[in-house]
Nucleic acid binder design. Structure first.
Lengths: 205, 205
DNA sequence: ACGTAAGTGGAGCGGGTATTCCGAATCCTC
DNA sequence: GAGGATTCGGAATACCCGCTCCACTTACGT
């Protein structure tokens, strides 16, 4: 690849990163190209589909997402690790509107992200088992509840980002107390894993 | 008003009701006019601004919203009334995507809706006090938490409407257990009323 | 039944989007 | 530094949006 091409590729990635962070995944391509100081054609030549661009932009964020599960697993107290994990991931959503979309709304199918997602899900399963084993996480917590949290958090975050950027912490505070074993009361059934998967695919056409 | 004009007005309202319910408040006017079987000009003549249309369409839903607080207040057990209120309102969001927007996202400024909102807020304040007095609702529950619930629920509902239409019940189940006094653990500060107000105004420009 | 005021619908305008095409500019090699 | 392949950027295309204008139609009072 020619040197200027590589340079432009980087500029597009950086512009896309900030535009997605501010405006979410449905930001306009024109805006990204404009901010990168590059023609739209250049953007499309390098990233023919939106998925290509999103995949490249969020590769590192997804790595951080996977790393969050690893850190949680490294915590000697699995319940503490779990709480920290939820808070950290919700913080990531609050910090980056595009990433919130990646986690809950549009589910880009870029393969790299897909793999990361699976790895995170695996680690999360182990974490949940351990946390339940300590008796601190309620037994009926389902792994499907995690995307549910992310969707709820996304709702709060998108609504309050400008006016009350920390409002989501209150929601997460409530939820974590509800996840504690002491809070146990019967709950409605969680959605099935398949349902959650389909919900996540929703907008990725 | 001429009879045919009145008839068309009704048709537009009905079409708008169903389109908003399916697609949310940002549905296109073209689509509404098309489904009503009228020209776009007719729609605009009758409802010059989007607020006029939204106000007319959701007048009855807002009335039901106010009625929900009244019913909650009528419950001999204020805590039970509170739980029922939350569930009912979240159900209304789940049933009507447009109404979910009215409650959390766009905050149309139509005066009729504004008045209803204020009336509901008043009733809610009384309900919360009573529920706290019984010792079942935690003391640190803030009235600002209610819009927070609605935003969180809106997030779940918009993400899962097609694939897992009952998923929101699980979220609300968790939240209600967190609101119970027994669950009490310190929480992050709630957003200020002013912050919440500004968050609700967000998209109404 | 007929004149007129009220009402209608679709074409049209201005502005937004995604995506493609192609002549011009740029880089790299020799 | 010259030639040729590569890459660029903006114009062009084809949509979709909200909203307005206006020639035509309809209902209603007389």
């Amino acid at each position: 690849m020619r040197a200027d091409a590589e340079r432009n590729r980087e500029r597009v990635l950086e512009a896309a990163r900030s535009v997605f962070a501010e405006q979410g995944l449905d930001a306009s391509t024109n805006e990204i190209a404009r901010r990168a100081g590059v023609g739209v054609a250049t953007l499309f030549r390098r990233f023919p589909t939106r998925d290509d661009l999103v995949g490249a932009v969020f590769a590192d964020r997804m790595a951080a997402y996977v790393a969050a599960t690893d850190e949680a697993l490294a915590d000697p107290d699995p319940w503490h690790g779990f709480c920290g994990y939820i808070e950290r991931v919700c913080q990531m959503q609050a910090d980056d509107r595009g990433f919130a979309d990646v986690l809950t709304l549009t589910f880009p199918t870029a393969k790299a992200l897909e793999d990361d997602r699976n790895r995170a899900a695996e680690g999360l399963g182990v974490l949940l088992e351990r946390a339940k084993a300590t008796g601190k996480l309620r037994e009926d917590f389902a792994h499907q509840d995690v995307p549910l949290i992310l969707m709820a958090n996304a709702g709060v975050v998108t609504a309050t980002r400008d006016a009350a950027p920390d409002a989501w912490k209150r929601l997460v505070g409530y939820l974590i107390q509800a996840f504690a074993a002491e809070a146990f009361q019967p709950l409605p059934e969680p959605p099935s894993p398949r349902q959650v998967y389909r919900a996540l695919l929703r907008l990725s056409t």
